[in-house]
Design a protein around this nucleic acid. Structure first.
Length: 974
DNA sequence: CGCTCCTAACC
DNA sequence: AGGTTAGGAGCGA
């Protein structure tokens, strides 16, 4: 435990009795087993776990335990045989529930702590002391006044049922003394229920008053003769010893020997299946459903646990962690907490970086030894060094490993002599010059087993890259974690400046690693990494693995603590192999079509260029906004000149279109020229350069580049291939299926508007989607009171713009801009819209309020988008953040849904015996390559997976529809 | 050569 | 008006 950590201790025994007494008796239907207290206990614990993840309530816990009384006799009985002597035996129907409740805690995967001879309160006191010494905060979940003595600046008492939190001030208010005097107060007052005698005639009010006056118990007893009130004086003198005994009895033992050290209370992701199996066995249908939905698990598929009436009584220690399991396509959230995590976490935070300690691996035996170390540790950070940045087209230069903080090595595999050509000229071999390197094939043969070993967790940074590199060598690395994706799940803010390793290292470790530039240089003088000195590369590469491992130690625990484990485990990590395979496959492209289009575009452009020069009266570069602005608004003095931020004439398409509408021919030509220039320069000329030997283009998907959870595509970007204009669309005909296959395009219809209708709960929108109506025409009809039949296309267009505007966090300024209408008119439209759909305004207000309170918003699947500046002082920055915050849950939920579909797609197709291959994702569209004779069978599977992708976690109240079509090329399939 | 600006392609 | 990537021009070192 370290500073900033947060320990939650649940007073389990108190919970049991409260649950038992607060609820009517309940028995298990199938056999009459009494389970009322178990049910109440489980409900309370579940709520607590849920609440504690809501960071708005307080700091999310990093450590968590449920503490029980072990038996009725404790060390206090030796002090005083009457202690708790008049306690009645627990009710008969509660007795069998004690062991069930311990089972329940185990099912929640929480440590269940108790100790012979000690009360729960003593254990709570001891853990609290340990936590405080480590610099942590503590929340004790209980309302027992015996625990108030523990309250302090970093310790609060939380009464879950009354939802009350007690700090020092609240204790003072309640008892008239601060927590540090609680023991003395209890010693005076006594406790009838526990048989703590106290001093007769002294109640809480008097006790508080006396302590206020005399300071502490001993002073009070010593000066008792001074007290005026006869009876009070006599009692204090007569019962002084009894008061001292009482003080001993109520003083909690904060030095209880602990069987489970504090650090072992470290929280980890629960095993959803285990919990659901238990709840099903108890026949708690409501809670089972609730838990299953939250954990995104289908309860029907979980086998009911075998819980007998005489369930095993839990010992004081928790069970050993379940065996580590690989996380393939499985649906359950399996914990992966290798042994020794806690130790390594501490080491990661403490150790400093020593580059000279890194090892260069030059032979098989040393490599084998490192892999043994990894096997023992159960964890290995791992990084590949390659000859280029493109995973699909690079050679492996080396691999680095780290097995614990500070212990890292580099394995050179493809290094060449730094001098390059000198190899050929010099007498000696490369080996003489740079030392021996293990042959690549030998190294891969040694590496393959541990990299695919289910009991070794491989940790990478931007792991899709390394995964893809090794996939080219026939190695599918599993299981793995990715520090970049963990960081992204925790906080995807754009303001963070990315999730690259160097940034993360500086942000979370306060360490600046050797940069690639420092190693290889930059610009013209940049060297290939393979030509850099191996000792320097060892420092660089091994450090990367070391940093990655340490980042993992710091970041991974935060996932669970902040309630983001399911985002990472459901939406991020499983997508890595899926995207890697998509990138590896690539999409077949017809070079000839692109080249013909380039020719056609060039010809048209040339024609336009001469016309443009003639109209302008001089030759200039139409691609230069600066020159163009000077011609249009300077030389020709056309009206409507606007300036950009930096004072240049604005010449964007909007400005030029407006001029063209007024009859000016030159701007029209420029618009056309620009379009051709874009299509040619960005697409038809450039795409062929990305084709491989088989004529396929492999894009690269960035998983952590957007603030909302969308993917992005680059090198080349295949998510912005033209579609709007006919000429642009022609480019899509170049994306083709090979002979004997078809391309299938499947896209979600209006998914963001559907999500809006669901989230904001808009009856008319939901109804329209259920009826399959034209949503924009319906909107126009609602707003302007016109029938949908025979709707003016221009009116519909406005309604459509407003619908999109709503998704984007509408402003009168933006809508006016979009529709080229006065701002006042746009304002009226918005007003009208809100009148017709008041739920939208409610949603927007609620989202803004949430974002202001928490600093982030959430998708339906729990992904967060952070907007800290929404609280900032700059009104326009604030407004921008408000709009983004309104958009993010909608755009982000859509992104989550298609991610879920992609993750499920391959197993679903395989299960149906189909060989369809997913190639591309374009935000709401998936593109597949399908054997011609499998098209018919594949379409319904693809549709089903996409349409059902939100389930079971989220049940949308609008239908989700997917249109899917097969054709020979992308243009026709779309 | 590397950066910013402007523009435009997509959902 | 929300979320992206990319290319060319222009400028300064």
């Amino acid at each position: 435990m370290q500073k900033g950590d947060h320990l939650v201790l649940v007073d389990g025994s108190a919970y049991i009795f409260r649950a038992y007494h607060a609820l009517p008796p309940l028995t298990r239907k199938s056999d009459g087993l009494p389970v009322g207290a178990v049910s109440g206990f489980c409900n309370m614990l579940w709520k607590l776990v849920e609440e504690s993840r809501d960071t708005s309530v307080g700091v999310a816990p990093t450590h968590f335990a449920v503490i029980f009384d072990h038996s009725s006799t404790t060390f206090r009985n030796e002090l005083y045989d009457q202690y708790k002597a008049n306690r009645e035996a627990p009710p008969e129907d509660l007795v069998p529930q004690f062991s069930l409740i311990r089972e329940a805690v185990r099912a929640f995967d929480l440590p269940c702590i108790e100790k012979e001879g000690f009360e729960a309160d003593d254990l709570i006191a001891t853990y609290t002391r340990h936590a405080l010494e480590a610099g942590g905060d503590v929340t004790i979940v209980s309302s027992d006044k015996d625990l108030m003595q523990l309250v302090g600046p970093c310790v609060i008492l939380y009464d879950q049922m009354k939802d009350k939190r007690l700090g020092p001030e609240e204790v003072k208010e309640k008892f008239g003394v601060y927590p540090d005097k609680m023991i003395e107060l209890q010693a005076l007052v006594g406790d009838t229920s526990d048989n703590v005698p106290g001093v007769p005639g002294i109640g809480p009010k008097t006790a508080a008053q006396l302590l206020e006056e005399y300071g502490d118990l001993e002073t009070l007893l010593a000066r008792a003769p001074e007290i005026k009130q006869t009876k009070r004086r006599e009692n204090l003198i007569a019962f002084a010893e009894q008061a001292r005994l009482s003080r001993q009895l109520v003083t909690l033992d904060c030095a209880t020997p602990l069987d489970t050290p504090l650090d072992d209370l470290f929280i980890h992701e629960p095993d959803g299946e285990k919990l659901i199996a238990f709840l099903k066995a108890m026949e708690f249908t409501t809670l089972t459903r609730r838990v299953a939905a939250r954990l995104d698990t289908n309860a029907a598929e979980v086998e009911t646990a075998d819980i007998t009436v005489e369930g095993p009584v839990r010992g004081p220690d928790r069970d050993p962690a379940p065996p580590a399991e690989p996380h393939g396509h499985g649906e359950a959230l399996l914990p992966f907490t290798p042994a020794g995590l806690v130790e390594s976490r501490k080491a990661a935070a403490a150790a400093t970086f020593d580059r000279s300690a890194y090892v260069t691996i030059r032979d098989a035996a040393t490599l084998q030894a490192w892999m043994s170390e990894a096997r023992e540790a159960g964890v290995m950070a791992f990084d590949t060094e390659t000859s280029s940045l493109s995973a699909m087209n690079c050679d492996l230069v080396g691999v680095s490993f780290a097995t614990r903080a500070g212990r890292a090595a580099y394995l050179p595999l493809g290094h060449v002599s730094p001098a390059g050509a000198a190899d050929l000229l010099s007498e000696g071999t490369v080996e003489d010059e740079i030392g021996p390197q293990l042959p690549l094939d030998d190294a891969l043969a040694i590496l393959k087993p541990p990299l695919e070993d289910a009991s070794i967790l491989k940790i990478g940074q931007n792991f899709k890259y390394d995964y893809l590199v090794l996939l080219q060598h026939g190695i599918a690395v599993e299981p793995f974690d990715d520090t970049m994706l963990i960081s992204y799940a925790l906080d995807a803010s754009a303001s963070l400046d990315g999730h690259g390793m160097d940034e993360l290292s500086e942000r979370f470790l306060g360490h600046k690693p050797v940069s690639y530039k420092e190693l290889c240089g930059s610009g013209k003088s940049a060297k290939a990494i393979a030509a850099c000195p191996i000792d320097k590369v060892t420092e660089y590469a091994a450090e990367d693995a070391d940093v990655t491992l340490r980042l993992w130690h710091v970041l991974k625990p935060r996932l669970v603590a902040e309630g983001l484990a399911s985002v990472y485990e459901r939406l991020e990590r499983p997508l890595v192999p899926v995207l890697a395979r998509m990138e590896q496959r690539g999409i077949k492209t017809d070079r000839q079509i692109l080249s013909r289009l380039s020719g056609r575009f060039a010809q048209k452009q040339a024609g336009l260029e001469s016309e443009i020069a003639e109209m302008a009266g001089e030759a200039f570069n139409p691609g230069s906004p600066k020159q163009l602005g000077e011609i249009l608004f300077g030389k020709l003095s056309l009206p409507g000149g606007k300036k950009t931020k930096s004072g240049q004439w604005s010449t964007d398409a909007r400005v030029l279109e407006e001029l063209a509408a007024e009859g000016h021919e030159l701007p029209r030509r420029i618009v056309d020229w620009r379009q051709l220039s874009k299509l040619k320069g960005t697409y038809t000329d450039t795409l062929p350069a990305h084709m491989d030997d088989e004529g396929r283009i492999h894009t690269s998907y960035a998983m952590a580049s957007t603030t909302t959870g969308r993917l992005s595509s680059s090198e080349p970007n295949l998510q912005n291939i033209p579609v709007r204009t006919e000429e642009g669309r022609a480019i899509r005909t170049a994306f083709v299926a090979p002979k004997g296959k078809k391309l299938v395009s499947a896209d979600y219809s209006q998914i963001e508007l559907r999500i809006l209708a669901h989230i904001a709960d808009i009856p008319q929108l939901k109804e329209a989607f259920r009826e399959g109506l034209d949503i924009h025409a319906m909107t126009a009809s609602e707003m302007f009171g016109l029938p949908v039949e025979g709707m003016d296309p221009m009116v519909r267009r406005r309604a459509k713009a407003i619908n999109f505007g709503i998704i984007y966090g509408i402003s009168a300024f933006g809508l006016a801009n979009q529709l080229s209408i006065p701002r006042e008119e746009a304002g009226l439209y918005i007003k009208r819209y809100f009148e017709r759909f008041p739920g939208i305004r409610d949603y927007m207000d609620a989202t803004k309020a949430f974002a202001k309170e928490h600093g982030y918003v959430e998708t339906l699947f729990g992904r967060r988008a952070h907007y800290p500046d929404i609280r900032g002082p700059n009104p326009s920055v604030r407004a921008f953040n408000e709009r983004a915050a309104i958009n993010a849950p909608i755009q982000g939920t859509a992104a989550d849904i298609i991610r879920r579909a992609m993750i499920r797609m391959e197993p679903a197709l395989a299960a149906a015996g189909l060989s369809a291959k997913m190639l591309l994702q374009v935000h709401d569209e998936l593109i597949f390559e399908v054997e011609e004779d499998e098209v018919e069978a594949s379409l319904p599977v693809i549709k089903q997976v996409m349409e059902g992708a939100a389930l079971p976690r989220v049940e949308l109240t609008v239908p989700i529809e997917v249109d899917a079509k097969a054709a020979d090329n992308w243009e026709e399939a779309h």
